[in-house]
Every structure is written in structure tokens, then in C-alpha cells.
């Protein structure tokens, strides 16, 4: 039974139509933590995030936000307490950075009060926090992927929610921009004491940045806790099916996962444990076949040309 925090769920059964992703899942996001959810593809990380942000209605069970059922709040009220950066958002054609960030103020606006003084200062602040202030007048569709991601983050920040859920915020970014985004998240966590929940793919980044790590497999939580307490070679092998070594990160001392060198062993596995020689032969055979294939194609081409 998870202990109550600002955001927690109990007995969650999560499903799309008939295909059940998670069954009887209990989850609690520790207050003021930087929680990172990791797990193999299709293990239900994003689904869980969607359930926690009331995008997906659980088939059974319930999500609680600030002591009440999340489904009992009006939509705008949830959006004032909890922000979500979805995996994919479409920037409208011809929108400027400032306009897009301004849309994050929607939950604070009313039909008749569409622009308050605080809107303006919050938008400026959010753009500065994410380093996009100097792009304010640029069109969003002219920006690079990294800049665009920071603009979307600025929009979510403009919502001013102390709880932030980020679904793979680093996808499609190069390593430098990935680190930029994660550093920004860490700053939000430290300086503003935001509670962050992020789905990440990179285990090393997850271990470095998370104060609380949730490891999922096949819709269930396999382990959770501080990364240095829970991340072991056994756990990673069990969850991802990949033999690894865990060493301390030379920079931070957090667990760092290094894949075991398997070169030369994959062919052997595929052949059900045949000897190394056999594997090498197989590789040689494959090379022959491809050469023959090339020769055939060339022959055909020649024939076509002469015809």
C-alpha cells in the first residue's frame, strides 16, 4: 500500500480498450522528489504517467491529487496543480515563442479576464528560466529541436504548477541538449522545490538526476528507491535482459551502467550454443551470399542496359 503523498495511485488497472497494460498497480510520487521512471519499451511508463495526469481513466483503482480523487477536480483546477509535457505536441502554424508560452497561462485565465498583469511576468520568467527569452519573437517552426523542447517546457512552467510530469523530455535531442533539459529540471527541483516526474530512456542519466527511481517491467513496478540503493547489475539484467556491469559514475558517484561486451557471442546464442568456429563460418557464409547477390544484380543491370 503506497503511503499518501500529493500524488499517488492505488490498485490501478490501466488499459487501452481491451489490452491491459498494468494491473493492480500502486504508486506514490514522493513530495519534492525528482522521480524518474525507467523500463524497457512498452512497459507502461507513459501509460502510468498518463494515468497520473488524468489523461487516461483507469479501468479500476484511483489516482489521488492533494488528498482528493483527481477525477473529482474540474479540468482547469487540475491544470493549476499539475503540469504535463506530453510526448508529442503540435505547435500551431505561425505561432511565436511568446504566444506559445502564453498558452500555458490558460488554466489561470477566465472568459472575461484573459490577460492579467501576473500573466505577463510569469511568461517572461518562464522563458528566462528555460533560456528562450531572446527567442520570444521568433516563429516556433523555425527553431531547432532543442530550442523547441525548451519552449514547450517554458509553456508548462508558465502553468506554475508545483508538480510537473514530463514524458520523455529528452527524446530527439542531442546529448548536449539532453543535459540542458535535465539540468533545467534539476534546477527546478532544487531551487523551486518542484516535484518532478520524468520518463527517461537513458539509465545513466536517470541514475544521475533522480532522487527517486521507479523501475518498471511489463506494467509492474519492479523496484523503486534512491538509485544508488536499488540499481544493481542483477536488476538491470532482470528488467532489460541485458548483462551489464554497474560502476560508480566518475563525475557524480551515482550508479553507471555499462553493457557487458558481447561481441562474438550473439551468433553463438542464435545458433543455440554452437561453437565459436561455427559462428565465424556463419558470418563468412553471409558475406559470400551478399557478394553473390551484388554480382547477380550487376548482371541484371548489364542485361537491361544491353537490351
Amino acid at each position: 500500500m503506497p503511503e499518501p503523498s500529493r500524488l499517488w495511485g492505488e490498485n490501478l488497472t490501466l488499459a487501452y480498450d481491451q489490452s491491459v497494460i498494468s494491473r493492480d498497480l500502486g504508486i506514490s510520487i514522493p513530495d519534492n522528489s525528482f522521480t524518474v521512471i525507467v523500463g524497457p519499451n512498452a512497459c507502461g511508463k507513459s501509460t502510468l504517467l498518463r494515468a497520473l495526469s488524468r489523461m487516461l481513466k483507469p479501468q479500476s483503482g484511483a489516482v489521488h491529487l492533494d488528498g482528493r480523487l483527481i477525477s473529482s477536480y474540474p479540468s482547469k483546477e487540475v491544470a493549476r496543480r499539475l503540469g504535463l509535457l506530453p510526448q508529442s505536441s503540435v505547435a500551431p502554424d505561425g505561432i511565436t515563442v511568446a504566444d506559445l508560452v502564453a498558452r500555458g497561462r490558460y488554466p489561470h485565465q477566465k472568459l472575461l479576464r484573459q490577460w492579467s498583469r501576473s500573466d505577463e511576468s510569469v511568461i517572461t520568467e518562464s522563458m528566462e528560466a528555460t533560456g528562450v527569452a531572446e527567442l520570444a519573437d521568433r516563429m516556433v517552426d523555425e527553431l531547432s529541436g532543442g530550442q523547441r523542447q525548451r519552449v514547450w517546457l517554458a509553456m508548462v512552467l508558465a502553468q506554475q504548477t508545483p508538480l510537473l510530469l514530463l514524458d520523455e523530455p529528452t527524446t530527439y535531442l542531442d546529448i548536449a541538449h539532453q543535459m540542458d533539459v535535465l539540468d533545467l529540471c534539476a534546477d527546478l527541483h532544487h531551487e523551486r522545490e518542484y516535484t518532478l516526474v520524468a520518463v527517461l530512456h537513458d539509465l545513466n542519466q536517470a541514475c544521475r538526476y533522480a532522487t527517486h527511481l521507479i523501475v518498471m517491467k511489463e506494467g509492474a513496478v519492479v523496484a523503486e528507491g534512491e538509485p544508488s540503493d536499488i540499481v544493481t547489475a542483477d536488476l538491470v539484467e532482470k528488467v532489460f535482459g541485458l548483462p551489464v556491469r554497474v560502476v560508480p559514475d566518475p563525475e557524480t558517484g551515482t550508479p553507471m551502467i555499462v553493457a557487458v561486451d558481447r561481441r562474438g557471442t550473439i551468433g553463438r546464442r542464435a545458433r543455440g550454443g554452437a561453437e565459436t568456429d561455427g559462428a565465424q563460418e556463419a558470418v563468412a557464409d553471409a558475406a559470400d551470399v551478399s557478394q553473390e547477390g551484388d554480382a547477380d544484380q550487376d548482371g541484371e543491370l548489364l542485361e537491361k542496359r544491353s537490351a
Binding site: S53, R54, M55, P74, S75, K76, E77, V78, A79, R80, G83, L84, L85, P86, S88, S89, V90, A91, P92, R103, G104, Y106, P107, V156, Q159
Partner: peptide, 14 residues
């Protein structure tokens, strides 16, 4: 106008 950014984004904004 918010829904033009995708259902999820709009829902996230309330």
C-alpha cells in the same frame, strides 16, 4: 485554439 495543439496538450492545460 488549444485543442489545435493536440488533445493531450489541450487536456494538460485543463
Amino acid at each position: 485554439r488549444l485543442m489545435e495543439m493536440g488533445d493531450q496538450s489541450a487536456q494538460a492545460l485543463g
